[in-house]
Simulated assay, not measured.
Amino acid sequence: MSGLFADLTSVAGGRDAPRPRAGGLGNVTVAELVKLVRRPANWLLLAVTVALSLTFGYLVPYAGDAGGAAGAEGGPPGAPTVATLLPAELVGNSIGGLPVFLGAIMLILGVLTVGAEYGWGTWKTLLTRGPSRLVGYAGKLLALAVATLVTVVALFAAGAVTSAVIAGVEDQPVHWPAPAELLTGVAAGWLVAAMWAALGVLLAVLLRGVALPIGLGLVWLLAVQNLLASLAAPLLDWVAELQRWLPGPNAGSLVAALGAAPATPGVEQVVGGGRAALAVAGYLVGFALLAGALLRRRDIL
């Protein structure tokens, strides 16, 4: 009876009352990773990410080139040719989609990881019988970090296979990027992917759901930031200056500095690569901290 009374008192006491813990950060992170692995939607997102990257990064450009570099003559400036699809260009081709359309999928992943807990009502169970709010939140962030890294590595692996096949078909020499260049590319892609996932987490915590955060995030990623870059920035100087500080243009500048094709949507050298990396990292930390502060202070039970 005393144990039952203690449990009821703990639940009624809110977030500041003592409660039994389900484990430390390591256990929470492992549990979150298991949840990510067991959700079919996450595997579907990974498959769609890889499929989109290969389709628009390799297959469509190769088909448009008609099987030879000469076929791209007279095409739009920066249009890919067979030479740009070979293994030597693996880094740029693998991360070129992350500033816009692949980044949108990472945002969806972030929203689903956190926002689904509101729809299912499982935040209540996690935070009343499990770890503290910040430990539970940190476990989700670490699991997302692993998921985004796996996604970026999968993009590089799929791109490596595809570019090697193209080189074989076209009887071109295979020259792979240096290991340091590959590691830099993976790190930059991971940084951009994690930033968009963190934005998804922030929207999910702010709006306490899934549908509206995904909708607003996609509108920003796929519409607003492209309209700002293509329509408003050429006409208004202050919008052009604002572009230098927004997350999307900085992500595009970072991947452009590493060899992404300028014809790819969202890829443009607005600022230098070093400054872009710092800006993307700043947004990543800022999104994560703001979402954690909201989760810590608000009563969501």
Rank of each mutant, 00 (worst) to 15 (best):
V169I: 09
E170G: 13
E170H: 05
D171R: 01
P173T: 11
P173D: 02
W176N: 06
A178Y: 05
A178P: 06
A178I: 02
E181C: 11
L182V: 08
L182F: 08
L183A: 02
V186G: 04
A187G: 10
A187R: 12
A187T: 05
A187K: 14
W190M: 11
L191E: 04
V192M: 02
A193I: 02
A193N: 04
M195L: 07
W196I: 15
A197H: 00
A198S: 00
L199H: 00
G200V: 02
V201E: 00
L202M: 07
L203V: 12
A204T: 01
V205Y: 00
V205D: 13
L207D: 08
L207F: 14
L207C: 07
R208M: 02
R208W: 07
V210A: 03
V210K: 01
A211V: 13
A211Q: 07
P213I: 11
P213Q: 00
P213C: 08
P213A: 13
I214N: 05
L216T: 11
L216Y: 11
G217E: 00
L218N: 09
L218R: 06
L221P: 10
L222I: 05
L222G: 05
A223E: 09
A223Q: 13
A223I: 15
A223P: 07
V224T: 12
Q225C: 11
N226M: 12
N226A: 15
N226Q: 15
L227V: 13
L228I: 10
L228E: 14
A229M: 07
S230C: 13
L231P: 15
A233R: 05
A233F: 14
A233V: 09
A233P: 11
L235I: 12
L236I: 13
L236E: 15
A240Q: 14
A240H: 09
E241N: 15
L242V: 08
L242F: 07
L242H: 09
Q243D: 15
W245Y: 14
W245C: 14
W245D: 15
L246W: 05
G248Y: 04
P249W: 11
P249L: 06
N250P: 03
A251E: 05
G252V: 05
S253D: 07
S253W: 03
S253P: 06
L254Y: 02
L254N: 01
A256M: 02
A257P: 09
A257K: 03
L258E: 06
G259W: 00
G259L: 03
G259Y: 00
A260K: 01
A260I: 05
P262V: 05
